[in-house]
Computed example of a mutant assay.
Amino acid sequence: MRIDIISCVPKLLDSPFSHSILQRANDKALSEVHVHDLREYKVNKHGHIDDYAYGHGAGMVLMADPIFNCIEDLKKERDYQEVIYMTPDGEVFDQQIANHLSISCENIIILCGHYKGIDQRVRDEVITREISIGDFVLSGGELAAAVVADAIIRLIPGVLGDETSALTDSFQDGLLAPPVYTRPREWKGQEVPDILLSGHESKIDEWRLEQSMERTKERRPDLWEKYLDAHPEVKTKPKKKKK
């Protein structure tokens, strides 16, 4: 997978893709992330890529031409399945969107908003999907773009050491992940639940499902309701946590 990120402050993205899982994905040639400086596409001698908004109001707006020209240049090299704009008024990003993008896309462009956003006309002309990472506003779309790229890339087969790991993440089955434990067996008077030491895989899976259901019900009742709607066969309440 190749992800091209367009930003007017590209140095903000130096670190996220230079470490850990994303760096390993790049080293294995499983993904490529390229960051493009929007200022290289300035359209006047002053180097401006933004201007005042029509109709007055505070804040600057990114101009249409620099964005359009950058995207058109990228499209000359390859076909893109999605041109995504990171914006607070986009659809809220979730695991299902990450799954879809990871499976269905080979090349993606992510445009980072800045200031008061971008000229609406370029949104109408070239953007195929608008995404938000939550109901809050950042200084720009760079951190949000890094979040989306990370969530997509880690799902590519071969990126994680254990390919089944991503399948047991929170949200993959509509539930939050169950609690996990490691050595030592006893820590500050607390012990690992006996069931996890039993070796009975089916019983361990049942316990984990119960814990996921209970945790989701307690912490994310909105997700719990969606889970019940999608799984009408779940008639009983999740069991209480076993200590």
Rank of each mutant, 00 (worst) to 15 (best):
K237E: 10
H114S: 14
T87I: 11
D162S: 09
L228K: 13
G113D: 11
R129H: 14
I109E: 04
L143N: 12
I133M: 10
T168D: 12
V92R: 14
R2S: 08
V148T: 06
I108N: 03
I156D: 02
D135Q: 11
G174F: 02
D150I: 07
D119F: 08
L74T: 02
Q96K: 15
T164H: 09
K241P: 03
R129Q: 15
I204V: 08
S7E: 12
A64F: 07
D94N: 15
A144Q: 13
D37G: 07
R123K: 15
P238W: 02
D229Q: 15
G113R: 10
I204T: 01
S165W: 06
G174A: 05
A98Q: 05
R219P: 02
H100I: 11
R220G: 01
D79P: 00
H19E: 13
A98V: 09
Q81A: 03
K11H: 12
W207L: 01
L62R: 01
G59S: 04
K76N: 14
R39L: 03
I152L: 05
Y54N: 09
Y181T: 00
G113H: 12
G113L: 10
T168S: 14
R220W: 01
A177M: 07
M60K: 01
Q81V: 03
E210D: 13
S170C: 05
D4M: 07
L197E: 02
T128I: 08
K240D: 15
G189T: 00
P179W: 06
H46N: 12
L196M: 03
V43G: 01
I97H: 12
Y41N: 03
Y54I: 13
P157K: 11
I118V: 15
T216W: 01
Y52K: 09
L196R: 01
F93R: 09
E77T: 13
D194L: 11
I49G: 01
W187L: 15
F171M: 03
K28D: 06
R215K: 15
E77N: 12
W224A: 01
G57H: 06
K242T: 12
G117Y: 08
D162L: 05
C112G: 06
Q120S: 13
D79R: 05
M86V: 13
I49R: 00
Y115V: 07
Q211P: 01
E225F: 04
Y80R: 02
D51K: 06
K75Q: 14
I84V: 11
G199L: 04
L62M: 14
Y54E: 11
L223P: 00
D94G: 12
K239M: 10
H36P: 05
D119L: 13
L176E: 03
K42Y: 07
S31Q: 03
I5F: 10
I133T: 07
L22V: 06
M1P: 10
C112H: 06
E191W: 04
S170N: 05
T216D: 00
L74I: 06
E233P: 02
L101S: 05
R185H: 13
G113E: 11
G113K: 10
C70P: 06
K116G: 12
K226T: 05
T168V: 12
S212Y: 00
E125N: 14
D4W: 06
C112M: 07
V83W: 04
H100C: 12
K188T: 04
A98F: 07
E163L: 11
I153S: 02
D94I: 06
V159A: 03
